[in-house]
Amino acid sequence: MAAQAPVTPSSPAAERAAALRRANLRVAVTLATIAAVFFVGIIGAHLIGGFDEGTSVLGIGVLLFLAIAIGRNVFGKR
């Protein structure tokens, strides 16, 4: 069987498209991770203890979420 040539981006447009796909995926994975942390976090907090733990986990989650959301924007502008 003849060996197939590896598929590589062959033009600047294809490279741009590949870079865009990577960037899209990066954003999606970050956001999905935040959602997963909130989902697991809220159940975990209740498994560990009561109101104080739950509120603390939620509070820290919200602060981290805001830090990531604002931080991404600030560093993105540099």
Partner: peptide
């Protein structure tokens, strides 16, 4: 993104 997982958890 922030609140739907919380409802799902609840």
């Amino acid at each position: 993104i922030a609140v739907m997982p919380v409802l799902a958890g609840a």
